[in-house]
Design a protein around this nucleic acid. Structure first.
Length: 125
RNA sequence: ACACGAUUCUGGAUAAUCGCCCCUACGGGAGGAAAGUCCGAACUCCUCUUGAUAUUAUGUCAAGAACACGGGUAGUGGAUAACAUCCAUCCAUGCGGUCGCGAGAUCGUAUGCGGGACAGUGCCACAGAGACAAUACUACUCUGAAUCCUCGUGAUUCAGGGGAAAGGUGAAAAGAGUGUGGAGGUAUUGAUAGGUUCAGCAUAUGCGCCGUAUCAAUGCUACCACACUACAUCUGUCGCAAGACAGUAUGGCGGUAAACCCUACCUGGAGAAAGAACAGCGUUUCCCCAUUUCGGGAUUCGAAAAGUUAGUUCGUGUAUGAUCCUGCUAGUAAUAGUAGGACAAGAUAAAUGAUUAUCACCCGGCGCAAGCUGGGAACAAAAUUCGGCUUAUAGGAAUCGUGUGAAA
RNA sequence: UCGGGGAUCGUCUAAUGGUAGGACUACAGGUUCUGGUCCUGUGUAUCGGGGUUCGAGUCCCUGUCCCCGAG
């Protein structure tokens, strides 16, 4: 499970990410990515070396809470393994978004697709 | 043995690696429904009433929720902190078996928002004469009057009565029902006698037609008699009660209250985003300072943007607990009392995960077997706490019931 | 964690407990040289399940889905 220091939690952070960030599509997982610009929001206390990752599972894609929570946990596990090996470029906000297909995928498939998305975004080292 | 149904219980185990949340540490870490949010309670604040007290125009403490409006519950007795829940029981209804000619009785099982229709009001479409102390339309019948002619106790019309055994409508028809008999009525059928005006066929007459008379059979039936069955009331016995049983007793004015309503009982309101502490934000107006962008003659002026905004701790996980486990006692039971033991998640973009192995379970394939191999494993995840209800649910276990087959 | 409201033809919307109506759309026919307009006709619905009632879109219970609000 991913440590709290790498988690995106604040409502305001999500608002900034979805307003400023760019969209990257994968096969079963999409992403919203924003390169942190500390001088634009000086009072938030952002730093260039921060890495914050959030996870979204939409109610419109899957109604059951059990399935949504499970997908979020699977995505977190995949990201944790990447962060552990320092595979993700620092200084970014990332939010991974669900698609309808992700709810029938296995953990290995989700992990592969997250790597694919990060490579497309040129954040994979 | 198999299949189906009902009820109750269960809702995979162990280990390794890498992680997450709580915790000083040791250690601990989803459910029977955590779900839906349909009820109830704890807890907190607010409102009102009464009393006490301090002081002063309000505060504190205690007890409570009257009146009104609204909402809820509804056989009886009990359980509970409380409930629309639970237990026991009564009654009614459905289904099945047995008994009875029948109305019905009885046994088993299931279901039931199961008070009141002599307090009042409303509604009962269409159809039908009439839909609730009703109606008199038609058939039938009596009286009177008028008109007509073939002048007869004829026909027609009108008025006023009588008449509920006929009309055939409807879910329901004026209101207990069933059986047997009586004396009638009525319908149908048959036989005999009679008629031949009218339709028809052959045509001396017969078939047929008419339905006048008698007889017989069958069906329905207001009324009367007897017997029986159910219901209500009364009296007696039994039961805490709802009610049950008995009687040569008495009686007979539809349905609907999940229509308004009446009766009895319960209920003050809002909810953890409750609420407490720290911080003192946001909104509106004015002033000042700093940043970015744009414009312009411009160390300045104007315009725009951005910077702040669901913060932190407690409440919140408890051992002074409506807690859990085991035993005993009381009780038919729900449950209560008592003795001993246990301490069992606590997050807030929200922990309880991912991968692998072995065992156990289910299905398929290969195999005599041992076994090998491939696949499957439901419904669904705490959000202040607890008691219920409702809905979802693979596989397994126990008990009971029904059906089929086999054996005795 | 709570509180409100709703669901009727393909779409929008009516209906004191008594035949589910209207508009647009669709289809067919007519009018026209053809299309449109216009006229006529036809088809199509009460969210699922249970109950009360002679009878339920309406009343009661229960589920499903949708929308709105909350210092």
């Amino acid at each position: 499970m991913l440590s709290q220091t790498f988690r995106l939690k604040r409502m305001k952070d999500f608002e900034i990410l979805f307003k400023e960030g760019r969209f990257v599509a994968g096969r079963i997982v999409n992403a919203k990515i924003w390169k942190i610009e500390p001088e634009k929001y000086p009072k938030r206390g952002y730093q260039d070396t921060d890495l914050k990752v959030g996870f979204v599972a939409s109610v419109k894609h899957e109604k059951r809470a059990v399935a949504r929570n499970r997908v979020k946990r699977q995505m977190r596990e995949s990201v944790r393994l990447l962060v552990k090996d320092n595979k993700i470029k620092k200084g970014n906000f990332i939010a991974f978004l669900s698609t309808p297909a992700v709810f029938s995928a296995t953990t290995a498939e989700i992990s592969q697709d997250i790597e694919l998305v990060l490579k497309k975004a040129r954040l994979y080292i």
